[in-house]
Simulated assay, not measured.
Amino acid sequence: MLVNQNLRLHRFFKFTWKVDILMLLTCLAAFLFDKYVILTYTPVPTTLPALIGTAIAFFIGFNNNQAYGRWWEARIIWGAIVNDSRSWARNLLAYCSIPVGSDITPEELRFRQRRMIMRHIGFLYALKEALRKTKDTTWAFYLSEEEAKALKEFTNIPNAILDLQSHDLEQLQKDGLIEGFRFLALNDLIRAFCDGMGKSERINNTVFPTPYLYFTRVCIWIFIILVTMAFAESSGLWSVFFGWVVGFIFNVTHLNGMHIMNPFSIDDLPTGVPISSITRAIEINLLEALQDEQVPDPMVPVRGEYIF
């Protein structure tokens, strides 16, 4: 996610240089075609690109609106995961108690609580890597060696971690370490984590309707050609520059929406939801709740520009 209000020039050109060159070549070809072919028959009326541009603006506005909706929904989902994660650690530490006559020691209870909280951090890292389709295994660090080895056989590791959490929570109730209503509260949090995971996967795996993107892109290029040809008679070679300016505005506006359409991806323009930073923030909160001595530092923006 970009945290700086302005794009650095090198990133700006890295984002647009390919389409800029292609637009300039297209505008030059359109100018030559209009000058040596079209003018022999009839000039292109200036009202034609004006009408088409209005229609394309509606298409781009719709696409960008839907893209921002996906991005904002992803941010809401992970905001809920932050709150539920804090509640998970708080409730585990506060709700569990050793009943009278039990042979379970405070050290064993503390071990179980810590294991479930650390395992939740592993769940967050596993979910983050699954959404970004990377092969990082940071999640394994927060699980026991036996659990990590067994989970590598699963296709959906975050879901498998939640299964382990449910089994441990059930065992806490069987051992009398947690009462019925408090058990339900913690079980509701596991269900909330599963909901957040499923919603994130839905956004990540749902492809934006191809016809909207394809025809919007095609219409933009037709529009650029017509604008250049419409200006060619009155502006001469300057029509190439004017066509590029108009096309730049439409293309960049369209590309901006396309880059936030997949909110969990990492690309040349890091505009997605910063789930790495969010995961680190949750990890810090949970380790502090455990009074752990080794608490990592928060992630800082890269060159003061963006965070992942």
Results as ranks from 00 to 15, higher is better:
Met1Gly: 11
Gln5Thr: 05
Arg11Met: 07
Phe13Arg: 08
Phe31Ser: 09
Asp34Gly: 10
Thr40Cys: 08
Tyr41Asp: 08
Pro45Trp: 04
Leu48Arg: 00
Leu51Phe: 06
Leu51Ala: 07
Leu51His: 00
Ile52Pro: 04
Gly53His: 13
Thr54Lys: 02
Ala55Pro: 09
Ala55Tyr: 07
Asn63Ile: 12
Tyr68Trp: 13
Arg75Asp: 10
Gly79Cys: 06
Arg90Ala: 10
Leu92Lys: 02
Tyr95Cys: 02
Gly101Gln: 02
Ser102Lys: 07
Arg115Cys: 01
His120Arg: 07
Gly122Arg: 11
Gly122Ser: 09
Phe123Ala: 04
Glu129Met: 04
Glu129Thr: 13
Tyr142Trp: 15
Ser144Asp: 14
Ala148His: 15
Glu153Lys: 13
Glu153Gly: 00
Asn156Gly: 00
Asn156Asp: 14
Asn156Leu: 07
Asp168Ala: 00
Leu172Cys: 04
Gln173His: 15
Phe181Tyr: 04
Asp188Trp: 01
Arg191Asp: 03
Asn205Gly: 08
Val207Cys: 10
Pro209Trp: 05
Pro211Asn: 00
Phe215Val: 12
Val218Gly: 11
Trp221Met: 08
Thr228Cys: 15
Phe231Gln: 11
Ser234Val: 13
Gly236Ala: 10
Gly243Met: 06
Trp244Tyr: 15
Val246Trp: 11
Val246Phe: 14
Gly247Ile: 09
Asn251Val: 13
Asp267Glu: 11
Asp268Gln: 12
Pro270His: 05
Gly272Ser: 10
Ser276Gly: 15
Ile278Val: 10
Ala281Ser: 12
Ile282Gln: 08
Ile284Asn: 12
Asn285Cys: 12
Leu287Asp: 11
Ala289Ser: 09
Ala289Gln: 12
Pro296His: 05
Met299Gly: 03
Arg303Asn: 15
Glu305Asn: 10
Ile307Ser: 03
Phe308Pro: 02
